[in-house]
Simulated scan of single mutants.
Amino acid sequence: MWFASGLSALWLVACAFVSTASAKQYHADPNVRSIQLRTHTLNQPYLDSDMQSRWFDFGGDTIIRTDSYIRLTSDRPSQTGWLFSRVPLTATNWEIEVEFKISGKNQLYGDGFAFWLTKSRAQEGPVFGSQDEFEGLGVFFDTYKNNRPGVVFPYVMAMVGDGQTSYDKDTDGKNQEFAGCSARGLRHATVPTKFRLTYFQDKQLKLELQYKNADDWTVCFDSDEPPSLPQVAYLGFSAETGELSDNHDIISIQARNLYASSTPSDSKKTTPGSQKGRKYDKKKKKGSWTWFFFKIIFFMLLCGGGYVGFTAYRAKQRSHRF
């Protein structure tokens, strides 16, 4: 019985270790770990057996091909489509990586698509297919130039909405821009097009793009004074076409919760995502984890042994009574 109890205790510890091991090292900083947010991650085939998604809703002209893409708009005029999470994103620090595709058969094309992290969800409107005067963060992948001299399109820009300010489509949001960059070649790229948005509360908002070469990430913007986002914010996407059109496809969404494993004094030495100025003793960290799990194993075995001994003692007492 002691041996079986010991094995059970070891099994519980092993399960705890596997659960902890699911936290992976963040690609940009060894002092930051990441855990996948399944509630905001979406991959093929996108839908379950009931032809619905457990964590996302979609509507408008959105079409889902379970083996290929979620098409927010097809290459047709006057279309609007959206995709929004059902539950809010509650992580304080997070990273969202999205593979998307913008394509079409016409030489003139538009209008683009948007990424949202907003207080409201799934409301159609005039801003890339979603509502105006939103509260939260919008990142616009604008492929059609209205009136913005000196700027090369496609243009990617972030806007922080306060719930009252409108997006000025006539000037492509020039006065509402928080940060942005030109991304020539984003449409019809020869490699999978992706964006990676990283947010550390009060520390960093960073947008990276992949469209030139595979695994070649271009920093679009990197702000060390990020905006304050709503505590309850839904993740979403939307797109629209007017007289000009394009296919706007979402291929996959990978969402991760980020948390720092360094001490507060270490975190002040540099901004998240940078290894400069940090001392990282892998051997020491590995040893601390080993000692931590050793203590758990010892504690579980001790509890298991005590329980078995107590059970045997009670059984012996009952036998003496008779």
Rank of each mutant, 00 (worst) to 15 (best):
residue 283 K to W: 11
residue 275 Q to M: 05
residue 266 D to Y: 02
residue 284 K to F: 14
residue 259 Y to P: 01
residue 268 K to M: 08
residue 259 Y to S: 12
residue 273 G to Y: 02
residue 264 P to G: 04
residue 289 W to M: 14
residue 291 W to C: 05
residue 259 Y to F: 15
residue 258 L to A: 01
residue 273 G to L: 02
residue 262 S to T: 07
residue 278 R to T: 13
residue 286 K to R: 12
residue 274 S to Y: 03
residue 278 R to Y: 05
residue 291 W to K: 12
residue 283 K to N: 06
residue 271 T to F: 05
residue 262 S to E: 05
residue 286 K to W: 11
residue 276 K to V: 14
residue 283 K to F: 14
residue 291 W to S: 08
residue 272 P to H: 07
residue 287 G to W: 15
residue 268 K to C: 01
residue 287 G to R: 11
residue 269 K to Y: 03
residue 290 T to W: 13
residue 275 Q to A: 09
residue 286 K to M: 08
residue 260 A to K: 03
residue 287 G to H: 08
residue 280 Y to Q: 04
residue 274 S to Q: 07
residue 272 P to E: 00
residue 268 K to V: 08
residue 278 R to M: 08
residue 283 K to S: 10
residue 273 G to Q: 01
residue 267 S to I: 05
residue 291 W to I: 09
residue 279 K to N: 08
residue 269 K to A: 08
residue 259 Y to L: 08
residue 263 T to Q: 12
residue 277 G to T: 00
residue 261 S to M: 11
residue 273 G to D: 10
residue 264 P to D: 03
residue 281 D to H: 03
residue 265 S to C: 06
residue 287 G to Q: 11
residue 264 P to I: 02
residue 274 S to K: 05
residue 258 L to N: 01
residue 275 Q to H: 04
residue 281 D to L: 01
residue 283 K to L: 15
residue 285 K to Y: 10
residue 282 K to P: 01
residue 269 K to G: 02
residue 280 Y to V: 07
residue 276 K to R: 12
residue 261 S to I: 14
residue 284 K to W: 13
residue 275 Q to I: 04
residue 285 K to M: 05
residue 277 G to P: 00
residue 268 K to Q: 13
residue 273 G to N: 05
residue 278 R to Q: 12
residue 288 S to F: 09
residue 259 Y to H: 09
residue 291 W to M: 10
residue 275 Q to C: 06
residue 270 T to S: 15
residue 270 T to Q: 09
residue 259 Y to C: 01
residue 275 Q to K: 07
residue 258 L to G: 03
residue 262 S to N: 09
residue 290 T to S: 06
residue 267 S to K: 10
residue 267 S to D: 14
residue 277 G to Y: 03
residue 272 P to V: 07
residue 285 K to D: 03
residue 269 K to N: 06
residue 259 Y to K: 01
residue 291 W to P: 01
residue 276 K to A: 13
residue 290 T to F: 14
residue 269 K to P: 05
residue 284 K to M: 12
residue 286 K to E: 05
residue 264 P to Y: 04
residue 270 T to A: 14
residue 279 K to G: 11
